[in-house]
């Protein structure tokens, strides 16, 4: 089974900074809806082909601090998660504002099992 390290909302950017300085590479982030009001965001890091995963569980309508100032590569995936699940990230270096895949008039989040309305970060 997948072994994940717990991550708290305040520590997102600190952990990213730590990993960055330690030479870890951000592979990607995965989002997943676990129940009606909670989402999982998993950060996958890689170093010399070993991986570690940080799991961040957030209630809906939480604004997660973006790690894209640390890892520039995170900008696409953070915009994607915003499009698919409506989890907003603060201070993405290149913010598409929920319009990476979706048109601006789309209000429902396509990957959520319960309807979550689009909101502005």
């Amino acid at each position: 089974m997948l072994e994940t390290l717990p991550l708290s909302l305040d520590a997102v950017r600190d952990v990213a900074k730590e990993c960055f300085d330690d030479g870890w590479r951000l592979v990607t982030m995965s989002a997943n809806q676990i129940d009606d009001a909670h989402f999982d965001v998993i950060y996958h890091y890689d170093k010399d082909l070993t991986m570690k995963h940080y799991r961040l569980t957030v209630p809906k309508e939480t604004v997660v601090p973006s790690i894209s100032p640390v890892y520039f590569a995170a900008l696409l995936v953070e915009n994607e998660i915003r499009d698919q699940f409506g989890i907003c990230f603060s201070d993405i270096v290149l913010d598409f504002g929920g319009a990476l895949y979706l048109e601006e008039e789309v209000r429902a989040m396509p990957f959520c099992k319960v309807s979550v309305a689009q909101k502005q970060s």
Binding site: V27, S30, A31, N32, A73, V77
Partner: peptide, 15 residues
């Protein structure tokens, strides 16, 4: 499946 999340290489190569 509850979730199938795919990270493709081009996604990583755009930045």
């Amino acid at each position: 499946m509850e979730r199938v999340r795919i990270r493709t290489p081009t996604f990583a190569n755009i930045p």
